[in-house]
Design a protein around this nucleic acid. Structure first.
Lengths: 193, 193
DNA sequence: CGGGCGGTACACCGATCGGTCTCGGTCCGC
DNA sequence: GCGGACCGAGACCGATCGGTGTACCGCCCG
């Protein structure tokens, strides 16, 4: 019936460990190490998932909603809707805040796409969907804010977002207001607010 | 004496194959497959390099100068120096031209950094140096072009560059003038030409 | 009480990993 | 012509890969 917490616990433990290890060590982490970290036997893992690839896909899938939420882009009804410009800039504030943590390794979806190199991989499909959702949310905010070309602006912001997460994750950039400044410049040029 | 072409041929064949296979299949490609593709025995490879990691680093190292050259950033004395704005925009033209090829997988240096995740890896050191050189060249052109804040502009352009190569390489974006447009917007905002 | 059911533990599979080593051949200078 | 440097082919090493098969255990439900 999956009503209580302990029913799903082995699956959750597995996906929690998968999220962390795949992110920290990359997709090449072994099934053995993964299961050991999760406190789950390989047998159980292969009863829950058809393959390691599916575990990776599922861990990204589960991460997607929380990812959008932390960026402040989810359509929450709690707060009165802040102006689109603020909401967009808030995304980059969050990104920069996350990037200063020393275990930051960049956007997990982009990393998975780069590491897998196969767009047909189940995890790549999930990652591409998450990336598409981000652009779409940017686009909606841009439109709401009266940008001249919402689609162009959204794709520009996505460039900044992924470029910043990749460079910061690789240790090639420290951001420090860089993305917020750049995003603001692009918003201005798009005539938004 | 390493004077003629054939003396260095096994090394070159190996690095050529390494460049291609590491780029296409990622750093997880096996030594066996690598040597087979290069027509070089494992024994020869391990006499030329201490480890697979060193082969990867050397292949990136060798690629670096040609990389900068293809972007049109090398200090060639042949042509009369075009204005900085044009030179910068030319970089993005070249990037977009490269990204339409169906075997395009993004910037090889950024990919290596993402895949390795270890900034101390010899190949990561090479890649970080190449990335630093790109930013520095942007910065020099920005200064030459009278940008208000050359350092800021250079980092912004690097964001665009890496974001675009990552997204295009992952199949999440098709560019189509996007980077050139965006770069031009940033150049304008920086008061450059 | 008994039988599933979900779970762990662990041996095991063939394949492949990075790396070493031996063998035989080819070519070059003496 | 001979010795040695060089190199490709590939066997071999222990470890690990993703994945499976078997046996055993505790727990809940009838």
């Amino acid at each position: 019936m999956a009503t209580s917490t302990d029913k799903t616990s082995t699956r959750d433990r597995l996906l929690d460990a998968a999220t962390e290890l795949f992110y920290r060590d990359g997709v090449s982490i072994g099934v053995e190490a993964l299961c050991r970290a999760a406190g789950v036997s390989k047998r159980s893992m292969y009863q829950l998932f058809a393959s390691k690839d599916e575990v990776l896909a599922a861990s990204l899938e589960r991460r997607a909603p929380e990812y959008g939420r932390r960026l402040g882009l989810s359509a929450e009804e709690s707060e009165p809707p802040r102006p689109p410009r603020e909401r967009i800039l808030h995304v980059f504030e969050q990104l920069e805040a996350a990037s200063v943590q020393d275990d930051y390794r960049g956007c997990p979806f982009l990393s998975a796409l780069v590491e897998l190199k196969d767009p047909g991989h189940p995890a790549s499909v999930v990652a591409l969907r998450a990336k598409g959702a981000l652009v779409e949310t940017f686009r909606a905010e841009a439109e709401r804010g009266g940008a001249k070309d919402p689609d162009l602006l959204a794709r520009q912001l996505a460039l900044i977002f992924d470029g910043a997460s990749a460079r910061a994750g690789a240790g090639a950039e420290t951001l420090q207001g860089l993305t917020k400044t750049t995003a603001a410049t692009l918003l201005d040029a798009a005539g938004m607010n």
